[in-house]
Amino acid sequence: MIEVLNVSRSFTTKKGIIHRKTETMKAVNNISFSVNQGEIFGLLGPNGAGKTTTIKMLTTLLTPNEGKITILGYDTVKRAKEVQKRINFIYGGERSLYWRLTAKDNLIYFADLYNIEYKQMQSRVQGLLKLVGLEKYADKKVETFSKGMKQRLQIARALINDPEIVFMDEPTIGLDPAATHLLHEIILDLKTRGKTIILTTHYMKEAEELCDRIAFIKQGEIVDIQSPSAHINTAAKNSGKAIKSIEDVYMHYFGAERGVE
């Protein structure tokens, strides 16, 4: 379903006014992995590890400098439009919506951009608003919404084209427990319907509960990819310590660089 082969991505920035210096930073370095249909695949790592860059390359927002990404058989660079029809994505936070428009207007606009048939559009918009618990607020402007409501609307927007793959970059950031629970239910429901989810998060418990497999990423490179239980066993075996959770695994991989033993 998703094939990532030897992918790298660098960013170049220019500094200085008279003596312009070009600096290149490698955000992702030669990563390879694959994701199966119906899988919830987690990408975990510290800030700046390359998770968001990876997600952006997978969603066709960025082109890799090296390597190849294939989604549902389509090359993300050469056949980006084919990929875009079949995927959608959510970034954590309150952005990516038109705040001065109503929730319904936001969803209808994106339904138009994804060329959803008129006959289906109204029922799909109503259904999605109901799914995320915003049906009573359909005609309210987004700027009046709480952070959690905006995030729920983002989820509805990301499902407007009934995507086969949904990419979620820290979708529960800043959400209260009820909103987080609702999102988890939606993610698991999507899985039962055969959808594939790619998830990045800093909440280890969330990753452990939801993900079928987890890739730990460190300084742009993948450290290891396994199921949560296999990660726990491997880390316990390698470290000789009592590792009982994905959070312990995370600390095993990244704790030292944060000054934590």
């Binding site: 969603t59 927002l61 994804y114 927007r157």
Partner: peptide, 8 residues
């Protein structure tokens, strides 16, 4: 980024 990444 959202509108740019739609198929249209």
């Amino acid at each position: 980024a959202q509108i740019f990444n739609t198929p249209e």
